[in-house]
Design a binder for these strands. Structure first.
Lengths: 194, 194
DNA sequence: CACTTTTTTGAACGCCGTTCAAAAGGAGAT
DNA sequence: ATCTCCTTTTGAACGGCGTTCAAAAAAGTG
């Protein structure tokens, strides 16, 4: 098959990009280095991706899928909805701590103004985020669906904020336990107060 | 005075950087363009700043000071501690919406691994963040100081998360009022549940 | 085999941050 | 005014980046 070789090259390039990110962050994703790792010419990258942004997007997609698996596991680990939500938030923190550079690349990567986010990317993000909706619906069965969705957004984003500022260390460098505490507080308190 | 000319050049360069950021984001901060705007040679930048990162840091510092002024005003606008905290969170959102590119530059700018955050930078950040501590102490007068500080961190970071994900639009593009709603929910609920 | 089409290649281009030898600009002495 | 010494400013040059595209290699076809 002709498209097979193309697909194989795509795969090797995405792997190379992932490796580069794990090694030195987004800044380490460089055309010439990737080509060498993947065993092709620099120009070949542009045969199978529109540009490096497209390649990074593909690598980020794999990160999102990994995150999704982790979140799926976390939700299954608890029974009570509230405990599930706490577990999900902690799973998110865990993932960010364990895979810091890959996780960072998700948000560090700003694509050009006009670059359209691919559908499959947004879809995976929705899937990750969607893990919160089920437990929230069970916790607040008589609230309208859109209100529950807004709560899910707020909880997810809030957790994300704690993790972002915590790992960036921009407002004080702290350990994993402290972040865990903040995340638990935020989720528990928000649920109790809602 | 000899140092005067240096200081003037520094000022013009920071202004040029701010203008560039407002115009096209961090990516638009380019040595040659800045030199032209500030009326100096490219090399002159490196006489008054260690590198472009240092210059960006100076520009970000000014953004932080602007943010601090906004937060100071917000805290003064309400009486009740809880209302103050909500106002602070909304002021943060407001600032990010109004000055999106300057605000983005604060977090988008990742300095090299070994680059030390200047003291004055961290100090200003602490100051911004510190606005939350007062109201929280009045709300929870019998909790230990470090617990209050942790709550402040969690609230600030949570708000930040809602704003970041909201303005990035990575998980669904939404309007300002929706974000406002999320922020209010998060702060109010967290306070009520704490 | 020759001929056409497709795929792959890597030198070349333009732009980037950064450097540093050389030019320009004072300050003081003659 | 001229020469000297030191400081400041300059911008061409360097290495590295993403990206392109004419040419070479490979694959397909009769």
């Amino acid at each position: 098959m002709v498209a097979d070789r193309r697909e194989q090259l795509r795969g090797r390039l995405v792997e190379a990009a992932e490796a580069a990110i794990e090694e030195g962050g987004l800044a380490a994703v460089k055309a010439r280095a990737l080509a060498e790792t993947a065993g092709c010419a620099v120009g070949a990258i542009y045969n199978v991706f529109p540009d490096l942004d497209g390649l990074i997007l593909a690598a980020n997609q794999r990160t999102l899928e990994a995150l999704d698996r982790v979140m799926t596991g976390a939700a299954a680990g608890a029974d009570e909805p509230a405990a599930q939500l706490v577990a999900l938030a902690e799973a998110y923190l865990d993932f960010a701590v364990r895979e810091t550079r890959r996780w960072r690349a998700l948000f560090e990567h700003r694509l050009p103004e006009a670059y359209p986010l691919p559908d499959w990317y947004g879809a995976t993000l929705d899937q990750v985020f969607g893990h919160l909706v089920g437990p929230l619906e069970r916790l607040f069965p008589d609230r309208p669906a859109d209100e529950v969705r807004e709560m899910a957004h707020a909880l997810f984003a809030g957790t994300h904020g704690v993790v972002v500022l915590g790992l960036d260390g921009k407002l004080g460098r702290v350990g994993r336990e402290v972040l865990s505490g903040r995340v638990r507080f935020l989720v528990r308190a928000a649920l109790a107060g809602a």
